[in-house]
Computed example of a mutant assay.
Amino acid sequence: METKEFLYQIKPIRSDFLENQLQEEKNALEAHFFYLQNLLQEDKLVLAGPCLDASFGLVILHNVDKEEANSIMLNDPAIIHEIMTGELFPFRISLLKK
């Protein structure tokens, strides 16, 4: 059975990202947020959010295959604009609050 859920972890490329954002980085983060909102409307996003220390963020996708999940990650504005790196993992949602 092909996995239909994936998680990608994004990490800032700079350790001082939270305290010291350039305007271009702020713009890329805004585009990243709208990109994720669009995925939510397309019923491909389950959850997305950052750790409060900005060390990493998570994006959980469903109703996608590996190729689409990888494409979604690589087209994330945070990755395109090289303010974050991404790593994709097959994932299974076992419990979910209704």
Rank of each mutant, 00 (worst) to 15 (best):
G57W: 07
N70K: 02
Q21W: 04
K66Y: 11
N27G: 01
L36E: 04
V59M: 09
D16L: 01
K66P: 01
P50H: 04
E67N: 05
K26C: 03
Y35Q: 10
L52P: 04
L36A: 07
D65E: 11
R14S: 14
E5C: 11
K44C: 03
V59N: 06
A54L: 04
D43F: 02
E24R: 06
D43P: 01
D16H: 04
A54C: 10
K26H: 00
E30W: 03
E24M: 02
L45E: 13
I13R: 10
Q21E: 14
L36N: 09
Y8L: 05
V64I: 04
S15M: 07
L7T: 09
C51P: 00
D65F: 05
Q41K: 14
L45R: 04
K26G: 06
N27A: 13
S15R: 08
A54K: 01
Q21N: 07
L40S: 14
L47E: 06
A54M: 13
F17K: 00
H32I: 06
D16V: 02
G49T: 12
L29F: 05
N20F: 06
K66R: 07
L29V: 08
H32P: 01
L52R: 10
P12R: 07
D53A: 06
L22F: 10
I10A: 09
A48K: 02
F6N: 05
L40T: 14
Q21L: 14
D43V: 04
N70M: 01
F56Y: 15
P12S: 07
N38D: 15
I60F: 10
D16W: 08
G49M: 06
